[in-house]
Design a protein around this nucleic acid. Structure first.
Length: 499
RNA sequence: GGCGCAUUCGUCUAGCGGCCUAGGACACCGCCCUCUCAAGGCGGAGAUCACGGGUUCGAAUCCCGUAUGCGCUACCA
């Protein structure tokens, strides 16, 4: 996608080892716009929080984003012409701040935290808006020297010009403006030389030639500060696209501490990236044509910021479930086999490593029946378990189910024996032959087909919910079927004895 | 407190002055199909478009106010 004069967007996560859906949506929109407009996408790691920033956390991010299908043109993992791609590796904030000081846009501030805190309290008591008093603005050279001599350290504070309003045309929210007077001078550089977020962000975005800044709406009120910085530095101002929040079902912002799941958890639980992407894209955005199923390519073609909703949206897990089921049903069988394999291996049904030809063949016969009945890949193992294991704990109680309430143990045992007989004589092991045999037994014993199949279902699988029984038997094979029928009959013969 | 943003069925949304007695999807309920469970088909319930004023022949759509929710108001990001 890389190109010369297209838009440049960036994803700027902090590597916390967790990636929640709200951030994913932001990055998705970044990706969609860049892709759809022949632009470039940059991954920039905001790793200033050294505590939580680890190489593992960064690898996690890269992995999670790739899983979703989001690719970028420049980043810490692949390099690029606008590095560095980790905030901690960038130097030069100090120089930029010095430039602002020289041009009179910023000044040294010697106030201590205690002083600032006290100012704030007093302002609040007086019912005023808490903002910097301006105490250090306009300090003379001598005053500064004296404060330094006292051992005080200076942070650099940006001076907000009075009496003007700052406005911009937000790609999502439209014309937006703030009164500068309400802002108050803000710190851009700590005494230790490390930049404050708003400042670092402006420098980074400028250095990386970002042309559209996409971020959460909590940054709406940071925007005027940043615009002021761009202006003072005489840098071109990027466009801004602010996104509404993604809420949980309690209408709270998605947060890990409130139990929100990270993307990789969805992967673990058997959700497909296509479904996650589809659902997230539809959360706060809708296509002009109203389609509901959209691939990443479709989304790239159709996405635009002017169709992004301006109000917050609650993420509905049930909707993801539905979409995921749809995608499981639509994906090519060979892909489904590959996607299901890790789940089958994790539950010990299938050996790890590459699937054998035999395994592949077996799955391609049963999965068409299973895919109609699951919503996540994680539900597949229990649906096919009968192919790999004899039912455990089969006993008389196993047959005490609603669908067999008209039948006692003797009848059930008799029916199973009849089925055993009929099925044993089958020349061909086909669905047609199996069904005919079952129906023959049912008629002879005066059982309804449903009743008989339920008895056999329990005998063979130990469960009351399975893929269609006839097809299941077909895949299971004659030998195992016969063995399990015999086994079930013995379990019924000896009262109270479990197999 | 100040500033900013938002407000259509439980949820996600369509709607950009008349086509709206507000459409779709998920969830929910019922029926059909059916060897279980699903899937699928059909149908139902569900929003006086937050509220109050305007503007207009006509407003969910434009304007003002109120309420509610959310965000920011840090030497956090």
């Amino acid at each position: 996608m890389a190109s010369g004069d297209g838009p440049r967007l960036r994803m700027a996560p902090s590597p916390t080892g967790f990636l929640q859906l709200g951030n994913v949506r932001t990055f998705l929109f970044d990706y969609l716009y860049a892709r759809g407009h022949d632009g470039a996408l940059v991954l920039r790691i905001e790793d200033t929080d050294a505590e939580r920033s680890t190489p593992e956390a960064e690898a996690y991010l890269v992995d999670a984003l790739h899983w979703l299908g989001i690719q970028w043109d420049e980043g810490p993992d692949i390099g690029g012409a606008h590095g560095p791609y980790r905030q901690t590796e960038r130097t030069g904030y100090r120089e930029v701040a010095a430039r602002l000081t020289e041009t009179g846009h910023a000044y040294e501030c010697f106030c201590t935290r205690e002083e600032l805190e006290q100012d704030r309290r007093q302002q609040q008591e007086r019912g005023e808006a808490p903002r910097y008093s301006g105490r250090c603005y306009g300090l003379s050279e001598e005053q500064r020297a004296r404060l330094r001599a006292e051992g005080r350290e200076a942070s650099i504070r940006f001076h907000v010009p009075t009496g003007r309003s700052i406005s911009w045309n937000d790609r999502v929210y439209g014309h937006t403006s703030f009164e500068g007077d309400a802002l108050g001078d803000f710190v851009i550089l700590r005494p230790n030389g490390l930049p404050i977020y708003n400042f670092a962000n402006v420098v980074d975005d400028h250095e990386q030639e970002i042309t559209i800044v996409v971020r959460g709406q909590q940054h709406l009120s940071n925007t005027p500060l940043q615009i002021l910085l761009y202006e003072a530095l005489d840098w071109s101002i990027p466009e801004f696209a602010h996104l509404p929040d993604v809420l949980d079902q309690n209408r709270q912002r998605l947060a890990k501490r409130r139990g929100a799941k990270g993307v990789t958890e969805y992967r673990e639980e058997g959700y497909l990236p296509e479904a996650v992407v589809n659902v997230l894209a539809l959360l706060g955005w809708s296509p002009p044509g109203g389609e509901e199923f959209l691939s990443l390519d479709d989304l790239c073609r159709q996405f635009s910021f002017d169709r992004v909703q301006r109000s917050n949206a609650a993420f509905d897990p049930a909707r993801l479930d539905w979409f995921n089921g749809q995608y499981i049903r639509r994906m090519p069988l060979t892909d489904l086999i590959v996607a299901a394999a890790p789940f089958l291996q994790r539950t010990g049904l299938v050996p790890t490593g590459a699937l054998s030809e035999e395994e592949r063949a077996r799955l391609s016969r049963i999965l068409p029946h299973v895919r109609e009945r699951v919503r996540t890949l994680a539900e597949i193992p229990s649906m096919v378990e009968f192919l790999y294991r004899d039912p455990s704990g089969l006993g008389v109680d196993s047959f005490q189910v609603k669908d067999l309430k008209r039948r006692d143990l003797a009848q059930t045992s008799e029916a199973l024996e009849a089925v055993q007989d009929a099925v044993d004589r089958l020349e061909e092991w086909t669905p047609e032959a199996l069904l005919a045999a079952m129906d023959g037994v049912a008629v002879r014993l005066d059982w309804r087909r449903g009743e008989l199949l339920m008895a056999v279902r329990i005998a063979i699988t130990g469960k009351t919910v399975t893929p269609p029984l006839i097809e299941s038997l077909e895949v299971l094979g004659r030998a195992v079927t016969m063995a399990r029928l015999e086994r079930a009959r013995r379990a019924l013969a000896v009262v109270g004895a479990d197999v």
